[in-house]
Amino acid sequence: MKLILTRHAKSSWDDLMLDDHDRPLNERGQSAAQRMGKWVEGRRHVPAQVISSTATRANETAELMVKAMGGAPSLTLDEGLYHASSDAILARIQRAPKGDLMIVGHNPGMAELASRIVDVAPTHDRFGVYPTTATLITEVPVEDWSELKIGMAQVIQFIVPRELKELHTA
């Protein structure tokens, strides 16, 4: 099965009175989420389900990506993914129903899980940083997500938004 890990897109800091959980995406983030969703769809990596943090910026990222993927994936919000540790994200994945899966969450948990879950890390210079809208697509040799263990995912691709412009996929 495929496992896709996406960090939320760039958020707005325009209203400093907003609680962190409630910060929306800025225009750049909205554009990046749409482009990344189109890219995922264009590479035929559309998951059956997307599970996202309930934070506004993560939820908006997930919604924009699902829409760009033709609306095919179902979207589930999980408050446990808000600033979750890599262990908490892994545990949530292990409870997911069968089928290709995308998780939309936050750093540092997403970056840490991405580095722990793969058998061989990509040589990409931004992998350790896992910038906003960074997306890791992996193939995992399991029949059920409960079987997922550290180090078993094989990297298909890791990509960041600036590369989408370079690839002319926007």
Rank of each mutant, 00 (worst) to 15 (best):
S74G: 14
W145Y: 07
T132N: 07
A88N: 05
T135P: 05
A170I: 09
Q154W: 02
R28M: 05
M69E: 07
E63W: 11
A121W: 00
R95G: 08
D125H: 14
A9L: 01
K2I: 01
E147R: 08
T132M: 10
K38N: 13
R35C: 11
V160S: 09
P161H: 11
N26T: 07
I117S: 00
V129E: 12
F158M: 07
T133G: 06
P161M: 09
D78M: 02
S31F: 12
G80W: 04
L3Y: 04
D100E: 15
T133V: 13
D87G: 10
W13I: 02
I4P: 03
H106C: 07
T138H: 03
M36N: 10
L90Y: 04
E163R: 07
I4W: 04
A68Q: 04
Q157G: 09
R28W: 10
Q157T: 12
N107Y: 03
V46D: 06
L81F: 06
E166D: 15
Y82P: 03
L5T: 06
A88M: 05
H168P: 00
V66G: 05
S146R: 14
M17I: 03
E163V: 07
R7E: 11
R162Y: 12
E139T: 08
R35V: 07
K10F: 06
K10H: 13
M17R: 15
A58K: 00
E143A: 11
V120T: 14
H106I: 01
S115I: 01
L81S: 02
R35L: 03
P131D: 12
M110H: 06
T54G: 15
G80V: 01
K67R: 15
L77N: 11
V129Y: 09
K10Y: 05
D20N: 11
T76N: 12
V46H: 01
R116E: 15
L101S: 10
R162H: 13
I51K: 08
D20T: 06
K98M: 10
L16Q: 14
K67D: 13
R162W: 06
Q157Y: 06
P108D: 10
T138N: 02
A68G: 08
T76A: 11
M1L: 09
